[in-house]
Design a protein around this nucleic acid. Structure first.
Lengths: 234, 234
DNA sequence: TTCGCGCCTTGACCGCGATCAAAAAGCCGG
DNA sequence: CCGGCTTTTTGATCGCGGTCAAGGCGCGAA
């Protein structure tokens, strides 16, 4: 119990992650099998093709999910934020590689032990199902973007999504909003199905139009949200 | 009970669909709320943006899931085969439109009633979770294809996937395999993020190379599977 | 400070796939 | 068998985004 207090009840994502399904008492079980783990930017937690071995909740930082072709082309197929779940219960091989985009902190569980907890807590399994539905919706939205949007639309839509995600859903706002991208230009390109040069040029175009500003390599300021939405095709 | 025998125990997808989680006896409950429904090619079961109202198992035929931009561009984000589940439990609005690609037969459930069945049958909820994971993997694979494959690779990979899906996983075979596509060229284009003309040209190229034959508008014969796999980039 | 190393930007050019246009092939009800 | 429709194929051209190649900028270490 004391342990649970220290490690779980105190957790930054206690109520947002799947664990929100559990009472403080029940957390003791999870706590016994969970292990905190840190990864540096660029380190990989799960490799596509290897057998599922761990599940985890992300506590801090951002990670990416990537799929790749035989000849080395890569596509980012999802981003993972704090309180999100990664990995899969039940045997099988991982379909995607999970890599840290920044230094990250994780709460990891051996797969089999995590399954046992799921077994005993139907409410947690339900939360996992609901999250998986949400992930599927997001993936399908991204398929629409990859297949049908122009480069300019992709970049504009991506900036809007990052602004809303990164800074907690401020209302369709007025005035400049500034935030930092957790991604390099190359990673933006990997998400959007473009090249690094095209991403850079589209950002340059938005900047030249006064729609955004680019303070430092990672910063973005949205100066005219309406224009950005128009560029995204809404 | 007699009803269940007639409608469920007898069902073409009895053991493959989610209902496989239920005993013959338990099927009675489902049977009471389920309703058979037919749709003609082109008719729509669920519209994106409307509230979830029905869930269903597909009994026969093929359906498509589509997402669209504000200005009318469309992308097929998934295909639905017999025994697959469509719709979502729990309130919310549908993210995709579900439309029949051929005449189809469905077993539909009012959403709330379906939730109640899920509630009582944890094993069924687990099957749904596992299917949703599979759908997510498939969506992510398609994201890789949309973002990183050339037109030729997309078409070749698509034909291989259809061959394996349509005719039950024959071993990486020898000799010609023939099957019918459940899709028009336009629908293939919507799946692959291409135009109708490009799809037609890529098929023409494969035909000219002797890799495939195109008997009739819908038929495809794979004459040289190894060459097709090479064209798909494996 | 200067060097070196990532990462980003910018420019020039090219090719793939979209677009526009028209002919050919199925398909169905007379 | 024909006429009218849809779907597919084929052709000609264009432009977006990829590719190749420099150059700039920021940052940490020597």
């Amino acid at each position: 119990m004391m342990n649970a207090m220290l490690v779980c009840a105190d957790c930054a994502v206690r109520d947002k992650a799947l664990c929100g399904a559990l009472s403080d008492g029940e957390l003791a079980a999870l706590n016994r099998i969970g292990r905190r783990r840190h990864l540096r930017r660029g380190e990989t937690l799960i490799w596509a093709g290897e057998d599922n071995a761990v599940c985890a909740n992300l506590l801090s930082g951002v990670m990416k999910l990537t799929a790749g072709t035989a000849d080395g082309r890569e596509q980012i197929v999802g981003l993972v934020y704090p309180a999100d779940f990664v990995g899969r219960p039940w045997p099988g091989e991982a379909g995607v590689t999970v890599t840290a985009l920044s230094d990250v902190e994780l709460c990891t569980f051996p797969r089999a032990a995590f399954e046992a907890v799921l077994e005993d807590h139907v409410r947690m399994e339900r939360l996992l199902l609901q999250r998986t539905f949400a992930a599927l919706d997001e993936a399908r939205n991204r398929m629409l973007a990859l297949g049908r949007l122009s480069a300019g639309e992709k970049v504009a839509a991506f900036l809007l999504a990052m602004a809303d995600r990164g800074s907690g859903c401020r209302a369709t706002g007025f005035g400049p909003v500034t935030f930092d991208l957790p991604l390099t230009r190359g990673e933006m390109a990997e998400i959007l199905g473009l090249t690094i040069e095209t991403v850079s040029r589209q950002l340059g175009r938005l900047k030249a139009a006064g729609t955004i500003a680019l303070p430092g390599a990672r910063g973005v300021t949205i100066r005219d949200r309406a224009a950005l939405e128009a560029a995204a095709g809404n």
